[in-house]
Computed example of a mutant assay.
Amino acid sequence: SSEISFSFKVFILFYKLSEARDKTLEGLNQAVEYKELKGKDPSMMELVKKVEQLELKITERENQLMEKELLVDQVTRLSNPIRDQVENCRDVGLLLAKKLNEVRTNITNTNNRLMGVTAELSMTQAMVLSQQQQIKEKELQVSSVPNHSQLIQRDSTKKLAEEEEWNQLPNGVYTTAEPRPNAYIPTNDPLPLPKPYGAHAPFKPSQPGANMRHIRKPAPEPMET
């Protein structure tokens, strides 16, 4: 069985080899296809002219390149001192920044100290005000205690006020009411002597109270003629 499989494989290989050989021979026998380009080839003189033109362009480009290189050299020579100045200014800027930071720290420290001093000052002022208030209260307490002369003067003034407030009527009665007139002086009498009113004494109305604002004054009616 192994010999049969081996012979079968050899047969297949020979078959594939023969097919490849046939295809190769067919390709060799076929004509090569190509596409013909239209136009004409330039002559030798034309080619020489084109080469000369290209050389001129190359020389122009080289000259332009040299000019640009010269410009670059000049710019670098001019920019070198400016670059040095920039570097120096950078160093100066760093120094200034350090000094500015130091000044800022000093300012913050000073502000903190000032805040502490103001707080202490406010506390001291509050203590002074409280002490002044206590001193005033003690002075008032001392001044409010009356002595013997003040007590005597107070009693005398009280008695005088009581005497002024109390009025004695003709019948001997004391009252705080305002005295009413019980006599009048006639106008036609040649002798201006007071005469008693008798039973028909004039009525003295009292002062109007706060409820008078609720009372409307009556409108007078027109009189008939």
Rank of each mutant, 00 (worst) to 15 (best):
G116H: 02
Y174W: 15
L151K: 11
Y34C: 10
S43T: 11
K50M: 07
F11V: 02
L13M: 14
K195F: 07
L100M: 15
N63Q: 14
E163T: 06
V173T: 15
I152V: 04
V51W: 01
Q168R: 13
E178N: 09
T225W: 11
L25Q: 03
G198N: 13
Q153S: 03
L140T: 05
D189V: 09
E36T: 09
T59D: 11
S206A: 15
I12N: 11
N188S: 11
E221S: 05
E46C: 11
T124S: 13
K38I: 07
Y184E: 11
V145E: 11
M66E: 12
E87W: 02
L140G: 02
E69N: 15
D91T: 03
A20F: 10
L129V: 01
R21N: 08
K136Q: 12
N211S: 09
Q133K: 05
L56Y: 00
I152L: 00
M127E: 10
E36N: 00
L17P: 01
E60N: 14
P179C: 10
Q141P: 01
M66Y: 09
R21D: 02
V173F: 00
M127V: 06
S79N: 02
K158C: 13
L191G: 04
E36D: 04
Q207K: 14
V128R: 10
E19Y: 07
V48E: 08
F8P: 02
E102H: 10
K99I: 08
V72T: 12
N88Y: 02
N112L: 13
E87R: 08
E62V: 03
K159F: 14
A219S: 12
E139N: 10
E102W: 00
A183G: 08
P42Q: 12
I12S: 13
H148Q: 08
C89E: 13
G93V: 05
I215C: 01
M212D: 07
E87C: 00
V32G: 08
N147E: 11
E26Q: 11
L95T: 10
V92D: 15
W166C: 08
P194N: 09
N106C: 10
M44Y: 03
